[in-house]
Amino acid sequence: MRIGMIGCGVISKQYLASFDQLPDVQLVAVADLDRARAEAAVEGRDGVRVLSVDELIADAEVDTVLNLTIPAAHADVDLRAIAAGKNVYSEKPFAVTTQEGAQVLEAAREAGVLVGSAPDTVLGTGTQTARVAIDDGEIGTPIAAVATMATPGHERWHPQPDFYYVPGGGPLLDMGPYYIHSLVTLLGPVAEVIGAGSRLRTERTIGSGPREGEIIPVSTDTHVTGVLIHESGVLSTLVMSFDAVGTSAHPIEVHGTGGTLAVPDPNRFDGDVEIKRLGGEGWETVPVAGGYADASRGIGLQDMAVRGADLRASGDLGQHVLEVMNAVLESATSGARVEVASTVARPEAVEQQDARVTA
């Protein structure tokens, strides 16, 4: 699968580091509104051309567009690429509004092209080993889950953090995809949500890079909590914060009738899964039992190249998670429980295998 990458910002470095390890994926072109940044991103990479965005979308050598633009541009770039007959794979969130995401999926169906969506971290050994444990009944019947992300804010380290603090950003749309993709992978789709949010500061100060000390406005909630009511009846509690200093909680805990499972950081591909069994003594480490070993960002593209329409990090999953997040924000504003109209099948589990030899 020949990839044209649009957007050469911070996250692109992680994808670029992965491409040489993916046997069925080839980077052939890059584009960025800042051409110098695109040129710097692929310096030393033979055969990778630097193009304008329009040139890349029209290029016959590109069959799949990797969309690493800011969230507000995700849907527009995807739609333009689809109109040119390209497959698309978008960074998270899939889009900013649920309506935009639906337009992308409809356009792709009409054009007969594939749509993928980050995060692909759920394909790693961390989330997939947890899935095996749940599916094998290691914690009995799942009852509830708690997902917690607490940080004082990305402006402390990111040199261009503006998009984190406008609609389409915030802790929920920025970090929530990792946690909710994992929760859906583990426990199935979400039917309803209840949400609340707050915004204690109207300004943030950039802490690094050439704009250090610059003050930027905040126009979205920076602490969001919600209850996700899964179709299975499991209740997941979500806490996403750019206001908290930190937490000692496990990133995700899944509680069942026979035990509790501690799931590692869903922003990573690996990490220990631990279980505390009813009547047991302390926490036990669960042996790795599933997922792509030694995976990194881009494994979703490899999975897409090999599996085609059966890709696991799919646009349908990305759209469902987007709708869940926007429903939480809607509930936070209205104070009412909100139904989630879409549903999605749990992606097929990943058998334990080397990320470089996928099947």
Rank of each mutant, 00 (worst) to 15 (best):
G256N: 08
A40Y: 06
V104P: 02
S334D: 05
A72M: 08
M240D: 02
V65R: 06
A349N: 05
D265I: 03
E330L: 14
A249G: 01
E323R: 03
A108N: 08
E192S: 13
F269A: 05
Y165N: 06
L123Q: 10
I11G: 00
P266T: 11
A336G: 01
A107T: 10
S90P: 00
L228Y: 06
T222D: 06
I6Y: 01
G112D: 09
A145E: 07
Y15M: 10
A191S: 15
R277H: 13
Q352N: 01
T141W: 01
A244H: 15
L51G: 03
Q160H: 12
A83N: 12
G271A: 08
V328N: 00
V234C: 08
V254P: 02
K86T: 13
V234G: 04
D162Y: 13
V306C: 04
E323K: 05
G291A: 02
V190A: 02
I143M: 14
V25Q: 02
M304V: 06
A40P: 06
P210M: 13
D303F: 03
H250F: 14
V321I: 13
G226A: 14
P71V: 03
D294I: 00
A111M: 12
T148Y: 01
A336S: 12
T185H: 09
E253C: 10
R131W: 07
P217D: 10
L27W: 03
R337E: 11
V254A: 06
T69P: 04
L238D: 01
P71D: 04
M240C: 06
T148P: 00
E100M: 05
K276E: 15
P171V: 00
V28N: 04
G168Q: 09
A75E: 02
D24Y: 12
A130Y: 00
V344W: 10
G318A: 09
A17F: 07
L66N: 08
A40N: 15
A75Y: 03
T205D: 02
G112I: 10
E231A: 14
P171H: 01
G124K: 05
H223D: 12
G318H: 07
T127R: 00
V234K: 05
M325E: 15
R156D: 09
A327K: 04
V53M: 13
G188T: 04
Q352D: 01
A29F: 05
A118Y: 11
V113P: 04
G124Q: 05
M304N: 01
T125M: 01
D221Q: 13
D120W: 04
G300D: 11
A108C: 09
D34M: 09
V224Q: 03
L228A: 01
N67I: 15
F163T: 13
W157V: 15
M175N: 14
R337F: 01
Q128G: 00
A355Q: 06
P347N: 05
V42F: 10
V245N: 14
A349G: 11
A295N: 04
F163C: 08
E348Y: 04
G9R: 07
L235T: 11
E281S: 15
I70F: 08
R337A: 11
L329S: 02
L16N: 07
V50T: 14
L301K: 08
P287S: 08
A359K: 10
T148N: 14
I139T: 07
V273F: 03
R49Y: 02
V227Y: 04
V65T: 12
V113Y: 09
E155N: 15
D120A: 14
M1F: 04
G9E: 10
E203Q: 13
